[in-house]
Design a binder for these strands. Structure first.
Lengths: 226, 226
DNA sequence: GTATGATTCAAACGGTCGTTTGAATGAACT
DNA sequence: AGTTCATTCAAACGACCGTTTGAATCATAC
């Protein structure tokens, strides 16, 4: 049968494994976390992980898919609203930016959606993880990127296509760093910044990104002789 | 004796190990790279790694120290020049930004300094690596951060201290992402962007960061009722 | 030559890894 | 009751891990 929990507030074995894996992957990385540590923390038998997911790689993919699918849906739904409000005119740039980054940071507030464990995981995937995992994440991510690139192109018609993608890369990088290394930011600022408060992050990040995206890009100067 | 190579263009065992380690760490991560793989690629005996460096952790630290010390020196030297040119007035914001990011990207051009292997490694360290390695990198990095934070404060006196650190975090994040994931950027932009050309990166990144840093930050709106 | 000290080498140490196996368990259906 | 099928379990598989050992090797100083 399709596994249905007998009790409503009793997690299934799959969920227990996914939760433990998410928490440990976020703390120790993918290579740094063993299947034994996951099943041990989940309180299930070692073989259960391979029985339900097949392999460690597939388990990693399942951890991402569980959170990423709703996240991308949320992003695209918000983008649709911004684009609909714009009609045939230019969409609101700040609205497009918020539609992209706010769903990710909002997850910090909802422990039942992974809390900041998954937030840190998302930051990790850009630097760590094997090709298989990356391709799964990128597959879910690329259509979002394309949709947002189109929206930004309409909001900033004076920019060329490569310029749009460059600015999106800077946007993604800023977001990923805040999500992946909140500790480093808090320590570097000696506690002046609180990277785990979504409202504070948004209030600081949105003006930065909005102005950065609006910045005109001078043509590349000819190579200097040397 | 203090190890001196008998021939000038003949790498010592330490250098061979460091080179191989740097390359493999950048490609497969720290946990994903075994000491055996390193010594095998370097063409030296397995035990040589522990003989010369003591442990894998210490080897990782040596890999970073070799590149990071000159890099931080370069950054601070350039910052000194900008601050000296400013005298008692406001330092040039774009100059401060270039002093921070250009030395890192310039390394891409010089294979003898690690090429883009070390560039990718630097991006990795923010998300991966154990506490010991992080503390070594942060120790070298923190004084640079503090110096640049002071310079930015003088260039942007209207911003508060936390705002300065927030904007620096976004700056570091953008830079780290471009360095760590050039492949993702090239693929996502379908080849429109070339993240391995320092001149292209700088020409796109500097206007973005300059405008983002200049952006005024509105006070945090009171929490909305919901 | 011989002695010395740094370096290299093959081999092994105990552990942990991802994965597989085959029997035990339990609930659902006839 | 007996049958079926999904799930759990303890145990083991071979492979690889970081590290250590002790003898072989080499250049140098006497």
């Amino acid at each position: 049968m399709t596994t249905a929990s007998s009790s409503a507030h009793e997690r299934t074995t799959q969920e227990r494994i996914l939760d433990a894996a998410e928490r440990l992957f976020a703390r120790d990385g993918f290579d740094g976390t063993s299947v034994r540590a996951i099943t041990s923390k989940a309180g299930v038998n070692l073989a259960a992980a391979h029985y339900h997911f097949g392999s460690k790689e597939a388990l990693i993919r399942a951890v991402f898919a569980r959170r990423l699918v709703p996240l991308e849906e949320d992003r695209l739904k918000r983008l649709d609203a911004v684009m609909e409000a714009a009609g045939d005119g230019q969409p609101d740039l700040e609205g497009v930016i918020r539609a992209f980054i706010e769903p990710a940071f909002k997850i910090c507030l909802k422990p039942e959606q992974g809390g900041r464990r998954f937030t840190r995981l998302m930051g990790r995937v850009h630097a760590e993880s094997g090709e298989q995992v990356k391709s799964v994440v990128n597959q879910l991510f690329s259509q979002t990127i394309q949709r947002f690139a189109g929206a930004l192109q309409r909001a900033l018609p004076q920019l060329s296509r490569p310029q749009i993608f460059w600015k999106m890369s800077f946007l993604v990088g800023s977001m990923a760093f805040v999500m992946a290394s909140p500790d480093a930011i808090a320590r570097g600022s000696q506690g002046a910044c609180n990277p785990l408060d979504p409202r504070e992050v948004m209030s600081q990040m949105v003006p930065f990104l909005t102005q950065g995206l609006r910045a005109p890009v001078p043509p590349l100067a000819p190579k200097e002789a040397s």
